[in-house]
Simulated assay, not measured.
Amino acid sequence: MNKPIEKPAVSEHLTSFLTFRIARTQNKLNAQITHYLKTQSDISLVDWRVLRLLDAMGDTTMSQLARLLQMDKGQLSRKIRGLVERGLITSRVDKIDSRQQILRIDAAGKAMVAATLPVVQHRQRRLVEGISEADLELFLDVLGRIDTASEDREPL
């Protein structure tokens, strides 16, 4: 007699895996902000993040940006080149370490951030409306702990 196939427990379904849920939500959020940026400007999400970080941080190296964005340096280098060509940022060789590029946002880049920031801020408010300050604080704390745990590279 054949034994009936048991369904896996809910906790074993792909949709209950933390990494699946985070990736799915990230994809939806990226698609949403990309749509908003396209209606307001001609920059990509990565372009906007680079511009926003440079606007907030001032002169920054490509290595620092790559670390903050958790982005491949080759991919970031191509994005930087495009932003330089469009006159949104400048790049110069570091006088102390000639292997490093120092990046700076230009006036046109600042104008792009100023034009798009209200849309991004409005979206942020809509994302968290209905979430209490305490819940949001807890969520960000948990997300921070997951982020730290994701850096562990010890064998499983």
Rank of each mutant, 00 (worst) to 15 (best):
N2H: 07
N2Y: 02
K3H: 09
I5Q: 08
K7V: 05
A9F: 03
V10E: 10
S11V: 14
S11D: 05
E12K: 10
E12H: 09
E12T: 10
L14Y: 06
T15D: 11
F17Q: 11
F17D: 06
L18R: 12
T19P: 03
F20Q: 07
F20H: 15
R21G: 05
K28H: 15
L29F: 06
A31Q: 15
A31G: 11
I33R: 08
T34C: 01
T34I: 00
L37Q: 05
L37Y: 00
D42I: 05
I43W: 02
I43H: 04
V46Y: 11
V46C: 04
V46H: 15
D47Y: 11
W48V: 03
V50M: 10
V50F: 10
V50K: 06
V50I: 15
L53I: 13
D55M: 07
M57D: 12
M57K: 15
G58Y: 05
G58M: 10
D59E: 14
T60F: 07
T60I: 05
T61E: 12
M62W: 02
S63H: 06
S63W: 05
L65Y: 06
L65Q: 11
A66C: 04
A66H: 00
R67I: 10
L68T: 11
L69A: 12
K73V: 15
K73R: 15
K73D: 09
G74F: 04
L76W: 01
S77G: 12
S77A: 11
S77W: 08
R78T: 09
K79V: 08
I80G: 01
I80R: 05
I80K: 01
R81P: 00
R81M: 07
G82N: 05
V84W: 00
E85A: 08
E85W: 01
R86H: 07
G87Q: 02
G87Y: 03
L88C: 06
L88A: 01
T90K: 04
S91C: 06
R92L: 04
D94I: 00
D94K: 03
D94N: 15
K95A: 13
D97R: 09
R99N: 14
Q101V: 09
Q101N: 13
L103Y: 08
I105G: 04
A107V: 11
A108K: 14
A108G: 00
A108E: 07
K110V: 09
A111I: 01
A111D: 14
V113E: 04
A114R: 13
A114I: 03
A115W: 01
P118Y: 02
V119R: 00
V120D: 02
V120L: 10
Q121T: 14
R123A: 15
Q124Y: 14
Q124P: 05
Q124G: 08
L127F: 09
S132D: 09
E133Y: 12
E133C: 07
E133R: 15
A134P: 01
D135K: 13
L136R: 14
E137K: 15
E137T: 14
E137H: 11
E137L: 12
F139Y: 14
L140F: 15
L140K: 13
D141S: 15
L143G: 13
G144N: 10
R145K: 15
R145P: 04
I146G: 06
A149N: 11
E151P: 03
D152I: 11
D152S: 14
R153K: 13
E154L: 11
